[in-house]
Nucleic acid binder design. Structure first.
Length: 188
DNA sequence: TATGAGATCAACT
DNA sequence: GTTGATCTCATAC
């Protein structure tokens, strides 16, 4: 059982909270998604806001694909494209709870602290070894493997991180109380 | 604990 | 030339 393209062919704001608690594996390595953020084309903070460019082209394509981009020149960030073709919306995967391939992830990251392996978009991609060459890959086929969460998740909502435009929008979602969040959520 | 620089690339002004 | 959906390491309180 895995998440299909239909799952992603809905509003990002519907899809995003449902992905909390889902399992993300890349090349057999990964864990449970505990934090992500939603970006919509009408959102000034979204890469797609100003229209199509070679970098963000995947966001303008069909849902259910991976959009990977380079951040601040050195980090890679993983997004899942949502909604229908042309709407250019996506969720940024910000943190997962490492479950499978701990040894490999520790080696790639050069760290022993489990909580720091995947808590942040750049860290996550380093641990899973995701980079620009994976931009545009389908999410319902190897090396990706996505499974829906098995139980109801306790979700917290907050404002997004590291942006200056539309910074007040409460489009950051997280698993309540998880020690693997890139940063804690406020309350309210 | 807290701020600051550096890494380094694509898009924008 | 500057900025950004970032992280790490160094230096300063």
């Amino acid at each position: 059982m895995s998440l299909t393209r239909d799952f992603f062919a809905r509003s990002v704001h519907e899809v995003a909270p449902e992905l909390i608690g889902a399992t993300l594996l890349f090349d057999g390595i990964g864990g449970e998604i505990v934090e992500l953020e939603a970006y919509h084309q009408t959102d000034p903070a979204a890469h797609s806001y100003r229209g199509l460019t070679p970098r963000n082209a995947v966001m303008f394509g069909p849902p259910g694909f991976a959009y990977v981009y380079r951040s601040y020149g050195i980090h890679w960030c993983l997004n899942f494209v949502c909604e229908r073709e042309g709407s250019a919306s996506a969720v940024l995967i910000r943190a997962i709870r490492p479950l499978i391939g701990l040894k490999v992830m520790r080696r790639r990251r050069g760290l022993s602290d489990e909580r720091l392996l995947c808590s942040g978009p750049g860290r996550l991609c380093q641990a899973l070894k995701i980079d620009g060459s994976h931009n545009g890959l389908a999410l319902d086929a190897p090396p990706f493997e996505l499974s829906p969460r098995s139980a109801v998740a306790d979700i917290v909502v907050g404002v997004r991180i590291g942006i200056t435009k539309a910074a007040e929008k409460p489009w950051r979602y997280g698993l309540a109380g998880s020690p693997f969040l890139s940063r804690p959520f406020g309350h309210a």
